[in-house]
Amino acid sequence: MNIARQQPPDPVRTRLLKAALECFLADEYHKVTTRLIAEKADANISMIRYYFGNKEGLYEEMIRDTLSPLLDVLDGPMLSSAEGFSAFLRLYYDTMTERPEFPKLILKVLALNQGPGRRFIQQMLERGRTRGAKKVADLKMYGQIAPSVDPDVLRMAFVSLAMTPMLLKDIFEEQMGHALDAAFLEALADFNGRLFTAGLAPAAPP
C-alpha cells in the first residue's frame, strides 16, 4: 500500500518568503523590489515569478504563511475548552516574537491602506471570524462557556490582548525596564488566558 508523504518545504521558496518578510517589514511596499528580495534570498529573480507570479503574489503568500497557523488553530483541538485560550495566546506571542514588526505591518495595511494586501487580509480575518464563531457555538453547546457570549465581542477582546503587547512592545519595555522575553510572555499568556476562562464561564446556579 502506498502512503502519501508530505513533501518537504522547497528551500528556495522558503528563503524567498523569509527574505520578503524581512524586506517588507523593514521598508514601505513600493520601495521593496523583487530584485532586492531575490538577492537577499540568494535566488534567481525568475523564481519569484515561478512560485508567486509577481511581487503582490509574494506579499500575499508572506502574510498567509504567517497567519495561517494561527487561523488553523480554530479547526483543531486547542480551543476545545475555554482553558485553551492560554495556549492560543502563547502561540500568538511566540509567533509574533519571531516577527515583532508583523502586527505593525498588518495595522499599516488595514488602517493606512499601505501595500496591496488590504482585501486579502480582510478575507483571512473573515475566515477567522467564521471559524471562531463556529468554535464559540461548539463551546456553548458543551457548556464550556456562557450562552450569552457574543462571538464578535470575544474576538475583539482576544485581538486586543494579543496584538497590544506587540504593537506597543518598545514602550512597555522602556517603562518596565526589561524585555518582553519568553518568560514574561509565558506569564502574560497564562494570566490573559485565565481572564478569558473566568470571563467566559457560565454563571454559577443560585
Rank of each mutant, 00 (worst) to 15 (best):
I121H: 10
A146R: 13
M62Y: 03
L195D: 07
Y93Q: 07
L168A: 07
P205Y: 07
R35W: 11
F85A: 01
A179T: 06
Q123K: 15
P77R: 11
Y142T: 15
F120N: 12
L105V: 07
D72W: 04
T34W: 11
M176N: 03
V159I: 14
F172T: 10
P151C: 12
K55S: 04
Q114Y: 00
A201L: 06
R13T: 09
R127D: 07
T66C: 05
G199F: 11
T197A: 15
A179F: 05
F24C: 07
E56F: 01
I37R: 03
K135Y: 04
M166L: 13
M78P: 00
A146P: 03
F85P: 02
N54D: 15
G199C: 05
M124T: 05
C23Y: 01
L70D: 05
Q175Y: 07
E61F: 00
A20H: 05
R118L: 10
T197S: 14
K135V: 15
A146F: 09
V109N: 13
R99P: 00
V32G: 08
R13E: 06
F52G: 09
C23M: 11
L17P: 04
F120M: 05
L79I: 08
S68E: 15
G193H: 12
M1C: 03
E39T: 15
D65S: 14
A20T: 03
K55M: 00
E83G: 05
F52S: 12
D42C: 10
P116M: 03
V153L: 14
E173A: 05
E39K: 13
T197N: 05
E173S: 04
N192L: 03
A157P: 03
L188G: 06
E98M: 02
Q123H: 08
V32E: 06
D27I: 07
V32F: 08
Y50A: 10
K135Q: 15
L107F: 04
T197K: 13
L105T: 02
F85T: 04
M96L: 01
G199M: 05
V12K: 15
R127Q: 07
L16I: 07
E186A: 06
V109R: 11
E22N: 08
F102S: 02
A20N: 05
D65M: 12
A162N: 06
D27N: 08
D138I: 02
P100W: 00
A19V: 04
Q7F: 10
R155H: 03
D75Y: 00
P165R: 00
Y142W: 11
M163F: 05
A20Y: 01
L125S: 12
P103W: 00
P77F: 03
S160H: 12
D94H: 12
A162R: 06
K18C: 03
N113S: 09
N2I: 10
L67F: 11
H178M: 12
L67K: 10
L200N: 08
S81L: 00
G53C: 02
P165A: 01
K134R: 14
G193I: 04
E173G: 00
F184G: 00
V153C: 08
E126L: 15
I171N: 08
I171W: 02
I45R: 13
D138A: 12
E126N: 15
K18D: 03
L125N: 12
L21M: 10
P9E: 07
F158D: 11
G132V: 11
R64H: 07
L185E: 09
R118Y: 13
L16Q: 06
P11A: 08
I121F: 03
L167E: 11
